[in-house]
Simulated assay, not measured.
Amino acid sequence: MKYQTPKYICAFIFLLLASCSSLPKGQPGEAAEQMTQRILAAADYEKWKATSAVTFVFRGDDRIFWDKKRKLIEVQFKKNLVQFSEITGKSLCFEGERRLTDECGELTAAAVKRFYNHTYWLNPAFHIDTPNAVRAIAEENKLLVTFKSGGATPGDSYLFTTDDEGKLSEMRMWVSTLPLKGARATFANYQKSATGVRVALDHKVASLANVNLTELQMFAVYPEAGKPDRFQGLLELTGGPGSESLNRKK
């Protein structure tokens, strides 16, 4: 008997193929820089730079707490909690209440990758004006951005589409971590944080995977007055943040 591929598998393959596309060519120059500034303004970039800290849950699993001002990060994933400093490179690792030492290097590496990936979804626009980013106008007045260095996966490219206000509405990705080249992601359900920064909480990738952010909170000041500092143990371990940064590249 001749085997027939189930219709749902055919539909799945069709969606995958439809999501693929070739990396377009772009034209750098004044038009690209003007579009960059329009996107940054719509992303509340100045308010983001003034935000002291942010926390959120990524896809209902990993929890991030990012102290932007002091460059201190906490990542909770599976049963692990990892804190690390972008300045000193030192880290603390726990499984429940038990501090881990031998496994901490490996866990920190995993936490750093999660941090780069998850915080990128807060708003990719926050990264388009970095020195390692090459910006160009591509098809239909869209902004093509290639990160030449830095981050977890240097060389990645993104094609951004905006709404009438300049907020990101769609992103196509040519990244080493995804097998689909040109995979499309949408941005929806923009909500304003306590510091005035709007964030899209809902994303759909390749019309299949949901990348949602929940429990989002931004802080104008952290640590908050009269409340404990979650990074006190890490600061005691590192001797406090210094003046040299490892530089968030992406």
Rank of each mutant, 00 (worst) to 15 (best):
A209I: 15
R98P: 00
K69N: 08
A109E: 09
P131F: 00
I73T: 05
L81D: 00
D67Y: 14
Q232N: 13
M173R: 05
P228T: 06
K113V: 10
N210T: 15
V199L: 04
K69G: 05
P28S: 07
L159R: 05
L15H: 11
F147P: 03
A109Y: 04
H203T: 07
I137W: 05
H127Y: 15
L237F: 08
I39Q: 04
T186G: 00
T36V: 11
F12V: 07
P179S: 12
F77P: 07
F115M: 02
S157H: 03
T186E: 02
G96C: 09
L40Y: 09
R248T: 06
I13L: 15
T146K: 15
N123L: 02
E95H: 14
L100P: 04
D163Y: 12
T5Y: 05
I64Y: 02
A220N: 04
T238F: 01
D163E: 14
L107N: 04
V197F: 02
K227Q: 14
K192T: 15
L92V: 04
Q232V: 14
E236R: 14
N212A: 15
Q217E: 12
C93G: 05
D163G: 15
V175L: 11
V199Q: 03
C104D: 11
D102H: 12
C10N: 11
K113M: 14
V145E: 06
T108Q: 10
C20S: 05
T130F: 13
E33T: 06
F65T: 09
R114P: 01
G105W: 09
L40V: 10
D67L: 12
P131N: 00
M1C: 13
V75Q: 02
M218C: 14
P179V: 10
A138N: 07
W66S: 07
K167S: 04
D164H: 04
L234D: 01
I87N: 14
S22V: 07
G233S: 07
G155F: 02
L100V: 08
A133W: 08
K250P: 07
I13K: 12
A200I: 00
K49Y: 08
A188N: 08
T108M: 10
S193P: 10
K113T: 12
C104A: 15
A42F: 04
A200P: 01
V82D: 01
T162M: 06
F14S: 00
